[in-house]
Design a protein around this nucleic acid. Sequence first.
DNA 1: GTGCGTGCAAACGGTTTGCATGCTT
DNA 2: AAGCATGCAAACCGTTTGCACGCAC
Lengths: 144, 144
Amino acid sequence: MSEPIEIQITEFKRACREVGLRLTHQRLAIYREVALATDHPTAEALYQRLHDTFPMMSLDTIYRTLATFVHHGFIKKVDTIESLARFEVTHKQHHHLICSRCQEIMDFQWTTIDDAPLPIETASWGRIDNKNVVVYGVCKKCLS
Amino acid sequence: MSEPIEIQITEFKRACREVGLRLTHQRLAIYREVALATDHPTAEALYQRLHDTFPMMSLDTIYRTLATFVHHGFIKKVDTIESLARFEVTHKQHHHLICSRCQEIMDFQWTTIDDAPLPIETASWGRIDNKNVVVYGVCKKCLS
DNA sequence: GTGCGTGCAAACGGTTTGCATGCTT
DNA sequence: AAGCATGCAAACCGTTTGCACGCAC
């Protein structure tokens, strides 16, 4: 799916230096956790996971760090109808399957759409940056 | 874009009767407001608009009513990265352009995507209900 | 008349913020 | 040594909930 974690971490460190962000243990740990996660975790979920190896890390730091990462484009917030914010590392173009029942989110590729031009009417709206497909349904686990 | 408001209202009344929802002034006013809105309003925004003609309507009622409407499929929550919930009446298949700067949301049609089959891998995920494209960019107003 | 829907007010929960301390640079 | 980042605790704000009254049926 994506690059090995070590390479991502190295790239992350470089990016931090580039934009002048201090490389703290917390930031490294949080980035690593988001990069390893495949489930688009919430701030709270990350807090719980990090608490084992990092008992002193506070929830505020997670929120602040996630906001910083989003601001610099290292990670992205995920589009959902939930009020809970979910995050993922910024990697290659992909789309989301969301289960209406358990809210689980899965990534999938759809290059047909990535390459398809938007309808011409959208051109007059402004500048287009990116497009993502959100698919709703019910996952196999919830169906059975 | 969509049907005349009177027809929508009539259909709404019928639907309420069908599912056994009492037809209160509040529900009618809220439905009408969402149906007339083109800007995917928040609960708060609806509250402000309704306050002129309906000074006694409370914000809680708006929240409760919106939840009821969503539950019955009369309206939909909109996918965004905001923590604010936004709503729109359920009408024909469409997609969203979102301005990263002012958060304004605009509808657009893209039948190419509506008709395109999802990649086969998604079939093993579960049951697919619907798919929507979310496009991010910066609208003309914010660009100038 | 019955009981669902509403208004009021208080609670809730995720997220943000001010301030003093600590750690990266 | 300088000042950004963190931890703590309190504030914030959108949303939900309990309760008693009122209105649609």
